[in-house]
């Protein structure tokens, strides 16, 4: 992946708006509103984002929300537990599909 992902590109995220500035602006406004303090705290939202980033395996998002989690007051113990939640859901989702396998087995079995 090293040939495709560069840490310094994270700071150039805004370049994505060059060919569709209105869409970029709408995305930014929505993104900013999503992460503002609301019914959930900024700290909780950063932890959710960190967990989702791991589930999606986005290195930019992992980088950004590791910093955001630390800067919103989470510690590595809490961040690690959040990643385990993401991993458990991914693992559990894979395992739950075993029922599809069992259904298929049942269908072709006597």
């Amino acid at each position: 992946m090293a040939g495709y992902y560069h840490q310094e590109d994270l700071a150039r995220f805004g370049d994505v708006g060059k060919n569709a500035p209105e869409l970029w602006q709408k995305f930014n406004e929505w993104y900013g509103a999503v992460f503002a303090e609301g019914a959930l705290s900024a700290r909780e939202k950063s932890l959710i984002a960190l967990a989702v980033a791991h589930a999606l395996q986005c290195p930019y998002c992992i980088d950004a929300y590791t910093t955001a989690s630390l800067e919103s007051g989470s510690n590595p113990d809490q961040m690690t537990e959040a990643v385990h939640v993401a991993a458990a859901i991914r693992g559990g989702a894979a395992l739950a599909h075993a029922l599809q396998m069992r259904n298929a087995v049942d269908k072709v079995s006597m």
């Binding site: 705290s41 900024a42 700290r43 910093t67 630390l70 800067e71 919103s72 007051g73």
Partner: peptide, 8 residues
């Protein structure tokens, strides 16, 4: 990294 919000 920067400090978290002080009150929290």
């Amino acid at each position: 990294f920067l400090p978290p919000p002080q009150k929290a």
